[in-house]
């Protein structure tokens, strides 16, 4: 198929960017979206133009490194990561816009590459259980009810890609944060630090410049791992409780 791509090009963090049009031809429907960009980059390289910078690593939907706004949708038209999106989701003659994640807390580094280290700093603020190596009790000493273990797993499936932030009109990181609060909060091992965790993570989130949640739900719709919106309810409930308990 033949397509018209309009791609965001930006030389560096402080330079002004623009949409640039690139026609591509003879695209196979079996290609992934990123392989289609690989083909374009090979053509650009051959004619002496610098290839388009974009992030990807595992290309099997689990590392969370890739992420593009494709015709206005985070990761494009399917519920999956950009690397797992295939060209059979498009039709011959389509015009496709390709942009980086847009959020104050994710500044653009170059072209389609953004800086998501704000997510790491939210985890540093409390997204962990303090258990030094070697200090752990025997694994079976604390049973975990299966329903709680399953819900913790569901929330832990978050890959930290940032699609929730990119999709949210407020650029809020609440789904990302709610997933971690839920994952650790469902487990008995996560209880001792539960109050401090939510308060510190939310504080860091706001400090990074993410917006607030107004219950729109775009985050959950865009999430390639289908993290449900109720992790945000959990976050709010935990936060309210922690503040009432004087954390």
């Amino acid at each position: 198929m033949n397509l018209t791509l309009k791609i965001w090009r930006q030389a560096g963090p402080t330079t002004k960017g623009e949409m640039v049009t690139y026609p591509v031809t003879e695209i196979s429907e079996d290609m992934s979206f990123l392989e289609m960009l690989d083909v374009l980059n090979e053509q650009l390289n051959a004619r002496g133009e610098e290839p388009i910078a974009f992030d990807s690593d595992c290309r099997e939907g689990i590392c969370g490194m890739c992420g593009l706004m494709i015709s206005g949708k985070a990761h494009g038209p399917e519920v999956t990561t950009t690397c797992q999106l295939h060209m059979r989701s498009f039709s011959d003659g389509d015009e496709i816009t390709v942009e980086p994640w847009r959020a104050d807390a994710f500044p653009v580094i170059k072209d389609l590459v953004v800086d998501r280290s704000s997510f790491d700093r939210i985890i540093q603020a409390g997204g962990f259980i303090s258990a030094n190596t070697g200090s752990a009790p025997e694994a079976h000493s604390v049973p975990v009810p299966k329903d709680k273990a399953d819900r913790a797993f569901m929330a832990a499936a978050c890959i930290g890609c940032g699609a929730c932030v990119a999709a949210c009109p407020n650029a809020s990181g609440m789904l990302f944060m709610g997933a971690k609060i839920t994952h650790l909060g469902e487990l008995p091992q996560g209880q001792p630090e539960r109050d401090a965790r939510v308060v510190n993570m939310v504080s860091q989130h706001d400090h990074e410049g993410f917006g607030g949640c107004t219950n729109i739900g775009e985050c959950s719709s865009a999430c390639p791992k289908e993290i449900p919106l109720d992790v945000i309810n959990q976050l709010n409930k935990d936060l309210r409780g922690a503040l009432m308990r004087g954390e």
């Binding site: 258990a131 009790p137 025997e138 694994a139 975990v144 273990a149 913790a152 797993f153 650790l184 091992q189």
Partner: peptide
């Protein structure tokens, strides 16, 4: 033991083990 203490959500049986 270490991973369970960190909160790694391994698959469990109905008895919680």
């Amino acid at each position: 033991d270490q991973c369970v203490a960190q909160g790694v959500p391994f698959a469990r049986e109905y008895g919680g083990l």
